[in-house]
């Protein structure tokens, strides 16, 4: 096994923090992601990551704690999308797009200003791409608290959320408050992606939110199992990614290691391909995927 685990892996505090934080974020993203994919809100999920990034950049500039900026930006973005009309299927794409476009403009401004005002270089890349290896151990409790809040809230609305994801008409006939449930989910989504964006970067945030759940939904037949499988796949991809990124330091003579996000995303893509192959073998005649109408 020595070839797999390069020297210092077991004793390294940074690695241990990365593995623990990665575990928490991967599990939370997987649970939130199952509902995100089922509701067809991948775009909103990704957009909120970028909106949170704008908040994070603003926090850098204002000298506020980054976590406040990321989560605050995400929640504000969710509110704006809701106000413009993310609830209606027709206008949803545009509502998401307009908010995302405006947020990107703000991010550009904030990052430009903070790059000009401080001598610290790499703010842009840190905010955009993040690195799980730069996480300080003190963030672990904060991240755990936020994750706990996200999971508890999600458990509270799970059944109405599930029914409204299946069919808005059925849910409305059952008396589910569609608008409240939809808004609660958007806020939960914003908190989850804002939190993961700061810890692991915007790319990985989307990758962990969509990839493992999409794979799990291909093979699992029950929601509970899909959630468990997605969490497992997410944690596996994250840990494999951390390991390879650590090892890659020793691959090149220049000792220039490759980013964690590269390996995690590669693992997620492999998982997705395997899930697709498994699905085709278990279900030889797949029904043509129909665009679900009337979803919120």
């Amino acid at each position: 096994m020595g070839w797999l685990f390069e020297p210092g892996w077991w004793a390294n505090g940074t690695v241990r923090t990365a593995l623990l934080v990665g575990f928490v974020v991967a599990v939370t993203s997987a649970v939130v992601g199952i509902f995100t994919v089922m509701r067809g809100q991948s775009f909103a999920g990704h957009a909120l990551t970028d909106v949170a990034t704008a908040g994070g950049a603003g926090a850098f500039l204002a000298g506020v704690a980054p976590l406040v900026g990321f989560v605050g930006g995400g929640v504000l973005g969710a509110g704006a999308m809701d106000a413009i009309g993310v609830q209606r299927v027709k206008g949803r794409d545009i509502a998401t797009g307009v908010v995302l476009g405006a947020a990107m403009g703000l991010a550009a401004l904030f990052l430009f200003l903070s790059a000009r005002s401080s001598s610290a270089s790499g703010t842009t890349q840190l905010v955009l791409f993040g690195s799980i290896f730069t996480v300080s151990p003190s963030t672990l409790p904060e991240v755990s608290w936020l994750s706990g809040a996200v999971l508890v809230t999600l458990a509270a609305v799970a059944r109405p959320l599930l029914l409204s994801s299946l069919s808005v008409e059925l849910a409305a006939a059952r008396g589910v408050r569609l608008r409240s449930v939809g808004l609660i989910f958007m806020v939960v989504l914003a908190v989850a992606v804002g939190m993961s964006a700061i810890v692991i970067g915007a790319i990985l945030s989307t990758a962990l939110l969509i990839g493992p759940p999409a794979s799990a939904l291909r093979v699992a037949r029950r929601v509970g199992r899909a959630v468990a499988l997605a969490a497992g796949l997410g944690v596996l991809a994250t840990w494999v990614g951390v390991l390879f990124a650590y090892d890659s330091y020793y691959w090149f003579p220049s000792h220039r290691s490759l980013p964690v996000s590269f390996f995690v995303v590669a693992a997620i893509v492999v998982e997705y391909l395997v899930a697709s192959v498994l699905r085709r073998r278990t279900r030889p005649a797949p029904v043509a995927a129909s665009e679900p109408e009337g979803w919120t």
Binding site: A158, R159, P160, S167, L170, R174, P292
Partner: peptide, 25 residues
């Protein structure tokens, strides 16, 4: 129209008819 990617069995959908509006797990 139910998406074939949804991990919802026929019996899950029927059960949601009884508790799909209830909060909590």
């Amino acid at each position: 129209l139910f998406d074939p990617d949804l991990p919802i069995r026929a019996r899950d959908l029927v059960a949601l008819g009884a508790d799909g509006h209830r909060y909590g797990l």
